[in-house]
Design a protein around this nucleic acid. Structure first.
Length: 553
DNA sequence: GCCGTTTTCGGCCCGACTGTTTTCAGTCG
């Protein structure tokens, strides 16, 4: 996968639309970008081994462009459009609710060429003059600009991790460095981050030179700053320290401000002067149990540590069941067999295929006939014995009135039903809450899928009383999902923490649409850990039989 | 630009929702 190329393809698609060219050509570019991302295709390897021709959705034209990109770093069609479309116009399409068509007409008719010019035009009531726009459009655009501004400078966790890990490995390869580690809120597994903070042990001078050359950083008292990460351009800082101070500095730059203030208030500052081998030793010295980085968020956790009541956090090795994945039966890229074998390769014992239900027609949702056909295939695969048990599941849309998407006679043929809202996001808080509560009361619902519908840095969730929903899940013994997709991470860790307090069990689900996405589960585990969840809180840790027993109840 | 057992042209995911209209275009999932 190459993040730059994915961005190039997406921007090319948008610019084709902005230029008023063939919209289907635009779609081909956009879908190629999704294919590369979802299937984690390494284009450099694919070009070298000539395997791009096997990828559905990438034909001769795109293959040529990608090959050129691999050899020269340039993509001809993208370069051509860049000359034609002002970058500010492309930026306007990043606003939610504004697509290429509207931006094109705003650009042509009002002459606005950037988000700030658009903002001015809205404030001066200019949009009312053009056909298709009115007062309300101006308001929604201004809101979208606000949302866009607040997300600027923030980055999704998986991108931050990818770049931070690359920087850490780079540092470790350099002679001047003995150790390097990710600190900051990324180490605490924040959902999104605005900066990477890296601690390195080394001789400030020579180490600094290496970094300055490579990343154009500037040094100030052993702290090198002003860098931008290699792929996503995330601001980053490298703090260089010596062996004696390494562990304290790692600790001091990991915890949240609230945590660190409370920590010093409790334990004084003497520990800062003592050298430690690792953080575990630091905690031993203070005579309290080790507080995992993900938990170093609030002051409360220190009290729990003092009372010896810290949770024993869920770990990847506890996981046995992979739930909520898609296949080529709906909008996934791999067959059920490939997905199940992918889960097996990651050490899982059972796998629930949960394709989209019939109302999600845009995603190839399954008609009743196709449900039956899929069940036959699952039976066959299980007869064949792939070494991993496959469960029959469905991701059923929660219809606008709270009903599930099939009659009971069909619903009862599934082992699990993940119920999710995919439409009608704008109901009032009361009716949205009632709708989801109704779905939870349905005896066939097993798991509530992405419970608030948020998309991080892009869309707030729908308006809903999430605590009332968690309370209802508690009452009816329903499971709620932590969606491990880093664009969603829904439930939030705070909501997941509340769910634990209410005794609601959590499923950690990758919502994978390709084999490569199965590993997203580990990011979801990070969120669960941040919420303080333990093995016993997570249904994926049950054996297949225990799990089925739980959901059949 | 992609795809193909009606294949080299002529289609291309489809329905809900929104804000604008007074029958529809654009956006989203």
């Amino acid at each position: 996968m190459d993040a730059n190329l994915i961005q190039i393809l997406e921007d090319t698609a948008t610019m084709l639309e902005l230029a008023g060219e063939n919209p289907f050509k635009a779609r081909a570019y956009s879908s190629a970008a999704h294919i590369l991302e979802e299937q984690q295709i390494d284009v450099f390897k694919s070009v070298k081994e000539n395997t791009l021709r096997n990828v559905a959705g990438i034909g001769a034209g795109l293959r040529e462009g990608i090959t050129e990109y691999v050899h020269t770093g340039k993509f001809a069609e993208y370069e051509r459009l860049l000359k034609e479309i002002p970058s500010g116009v492309l930026d306007m399409t990043r606003l939610r609710g504004l697509g290429a068509k509207k931006v094109r007409s705003l650009h042509i008719q009002l002459g606005v060429s950037s988000i700030s010019e658009l903002e001015q035009a809205c404030r001066k009531d200019k949009l009312c003059d053009i056909k298709g726009f009115g007062k309300k459009s101006q308001e929604t655009i201004l809101k979208a600009i606000e949302m866009w501004r607040s997300s600027q400078g923030n980055f999704h966790q998986h991108k931050a991790l990818m770049d931070a890990e690359a920087i850490v490995s780079f540092l470790k390869e350099q002679k001047g460095f003995k150790a390097a580690e990710i600190a900051g809120d990324l180490r605490r597994r924040a959902e999104t981050v605005s900066e990477l903070y890296i601690i390195a042990e080394g001789k400030s001078k020579e180490a600094g030179e290496v970094l300055k050359d490579q990343f154009e950083l500037t040094e100030k008292n052993g702290i090198l700053e002003g860098g931008h990460s290699p792929v996503f351009g995330i601001p980053f800082v490298v703090e260089i320290t010596d062996r004696k101070n390494y562990v304290q500095r790692l600790h001091e730059t990991t915890g949240s401000e609230e945590f660190l203030i409370a920590f010093r208030k409790q334990f004084g500052e003497d520990f800062l002067k003592k050298p430690f081998k690792n953080e575990e030793e630091l905690y031993e010295f203070l005579k309290i149990p080790y507080i995992e980085p993900e938990l170093r968020e609030s002051a409360d956790i220190i009290k729990l540590a003092l009372q010896n009541k810290l949770p024993e956090l869920i770990e990847p090795k506890h996981m046995r069941g992979m739930l909520h994945c898609h296949s080529t039966w709906s909008d996934g890229h791999n067959s059920i067999r490939e997905m199940a074998l992918g889960a097996k390769a990651l050490g899982y014992e059972y796998f629930a295929i949960c394709d989209h239900s019939r109302t999600a027609s845009y995603a190839g949702g399954l008609t009743i006939e196709r449900v039956k056909a899929q069940h036959e295939e699952v039976d066959k695969l299980n007869d064949e014995d792939l070494g991993i048990r496959i469960l029959k599941g469905i991701e059923s849309d929660i219809l606008p009135d709270g009903d599930l998407d099939y009659p009971d006679a069909i619903l009862k043929t599934f082992d699990i039903v993940v119920a999710s809202v995919h439409s009608s996001f704008t109901q009032t808080r009361e009716s949205q809450t009632a709708r989801i509560i109704k779905a939870l009361e349905n005896p066939y619902t097993t798991i509530l899928g992405h419970a608030t519908g948020r998309i991080l840095l892009s869309r707030a969730g729908f308006d809903v009383d999430i605590e009332a929903i968690i309370d209802t899940a508690a009452e009816f013994g329903k499971i709620i999902e932590i969606n491990a997709n880093p664009y969603r991470f829904d439930l939030s860790w705070q909501n997941a923490k509340y769910a634990k307090e209410r005794g609601v069990r959590i499923a950690i689900n990758p919502d994978a649409h390709a084999v490569a996405e199965l590993e997203l589960t580990n990011l979801g585990i990070g969120i669960a850990r941040k919420a303080g969840l333990e093995k016993s809180d997570i249904v994926n840790t049950l054996s297949c039989d225990e799990f089925l027993k739980l959901v059949k109840k």
